[in-house]
Design a protein around this nucleic acid. Structure first.
Lengths: 188, 188
DNA sequence: GCATTATGATACAAGTATGTTCCATAAAGT
DNA sequence: ACTTTATGGAACATACTTGTATCATAATGC
């Protein structure tokens, strides 16, 4: 008896995760049959690994949120200033466009599930801490509410996502645009 | 035989529009039964006025898009500068938070329906024109792509919407924050 | 007041998603 | 090699949603 996950389960899980993320992003009403077919596994396997449709969606959401967490947790130590940390954050998040799209299309997990809410609020508060630090460092305006700046980060990611969908712009360029706008706005 | 709409139809339509906007914002999978109950009309009436579920959603979407159009169409003539037009735009849009929420939760009508896409792209191009004008006026940076600035407007509305949901901030204050960030960013 | 017309309730048919159970098979672990 | 375990397919029950048809009732227009 080991706690090592059976290779078959692991394979199924990653395939389901990937297919679920893509299908549910495109169409929130995608059925278990659809997801199973796209993942290349039997419908029964979905029910075996995730009891219900709701639980699968929650599992995918947690997976996405944790991907964000993993990507952003080392930023503060790598950056030399709080401002630069935001720049690194914009750059780091773009490889997670699939995860970002899923979370954006999902909408308010805010109200749905306490566990998801907890993870989400934890990440929000980490950004809030960074904002407060930047304020004390003197690099961010102290007149603006912290919550506004925190949500602005999300809003700029949304802006980037819109722009990326319409035009094919380089990820790094997009991150630079977001960071520049974050700091200076768009006025001349 | 008049082309005046029967008062009963009008009453039903507005009730359905309102209920549809609210319910479908909260839960995209809301059924016709749910919407009918919330609107206080019979399910049959929904099918009579809007043939199918898809057509109802499309009707609500058009209603929302046109509400935006109506609100923003006179801005250019009222504003004294292109920049000020953006300020007025942020202020004008906040009363339409229900419409905004519906459209945001709806996601890509971009790919769904050519008619919706047409209206949406028309509005986008109107903003693009305004951006180009502001650039020529010298009030917006010419280095930034027009599409980025256009999407930034949407992104700042999204930011405002997030902030409004979390904290209870005055609409006008929120519009000022959005405009200030639009122009100058958040750096000190 | 009277004819017209929208309404809501009910019943109905068809389709589809959900979730469960069982079993032979194949792939993993040891 | 041998045992254990995950898998996929099939069959099945249930529930729900969609969409249509009918009809008595009530509100509207004139």
């Amino acid at each position: 008896m080991t706690d090592h996950l059976d290779a078959r389960i692991q394979k199924s899980q990653t395939a389901i995760m990937k297919a679920g993320m893509e299908l549910l992003s495109k169409n929130r009403e995608a059925s278990f049959s659809d997801i199973a077919r796209a993942a290349g596994v039997g419908r029964t396997t979905l029910y075996r690994l995730y009891d219900t449709r709701e639980k699968l969606i929650k599992a995918v959401a947690i997976h996405c949120l944790e991907a964000f967490d993993k990507t952003t947790e080392h930023l503060e130590s790598e950056a030399e200033s709080a401002l630069q940390a935001f720049h690194l954050m914009f750059k780091a998040i773009f490889p997670l466009s699939a995860e970002m799209e899923f979370l954006m299309k999902l909408g308010d997990f805010n109200e749905d599930d306490p566990e998801l809410t907890a993870i989400y609020e934890k990440q929000e508060s980490e950004i809030a801490t960074l904002v407060e630090y930047a304020k004390s460092e003197g690099s961010l305006s102290k007149k603006l509410p912290t919550s506004w700046v925190v949500n602005l980060v999300e809003g700029l990611l949304y802006t980037s996502w819109l722009t990326k969908n319409a035009e094919s712009i380089d990820h790094d360029t997009l991150a630079d645009l977001a960071f520049h706008t974050f700091c200076n706005g768009v006025a001349r």
